[in-house]
């Protein structure tokens, strides 16, 4: 397969994640969308490295770092969601509108 095919796959995955972020009410569902977008980026890293003959280990290490950071991000995000749930009795993103003008 070609590089373009993988890039299109990643783009599709990213767009689906974006849709989830934009359309869903549930904070956890939004978090799911973010994770999808992160994985799309990971696919891009590996694909570029695979086809463009760059530094072999570099992309893998970047992907590992992204996965690690995503784990940290998910832990914090879920903690915040739990806290918000306790405060608002809801995890609907529309309920968090305290910053409106």
């Amino acid at each position: 397969m070609t590089l373009e095919a993988y890039l299109l796959l990643a783009l599709l995955l990213f767009s689906m994640g974006l849709y989830a972020v934009l359309a869903r009410h549930n904070l956890i569902a939004i978090l799911i969308g973010v994770e999808l977008m992160l994985n799309a980026a990971n696919i891009n890293f590996l694909a570029f490295n695979y086809f463009l003959h760059l530094d072999p280990a570099m992309a893998q290490i970047i992907v590992l770092f992204v996965i690690g950071l995503a784990a940290a991000e998910a832990a914090i995000a879920l903690a915040i969601i739990l806290k918000l749930y306790r405060k608002h009795q809801s995890i609907d993103v529309d309920a968090m509108r305290e910053l409106r003008g």
Partner: peptide, 18 residues
């Protein structure tokens, strides 16, 4: 006037920028 655009809806902001 401009404050009315600040809806507090996160997704609207993200959508606009995307």
């Amino acid at each position: 006037t401009a404050a009315k655009a600040q809806t507090g809806r996160l997704q609207l902001y993200i959508g606009t920028s995307i």
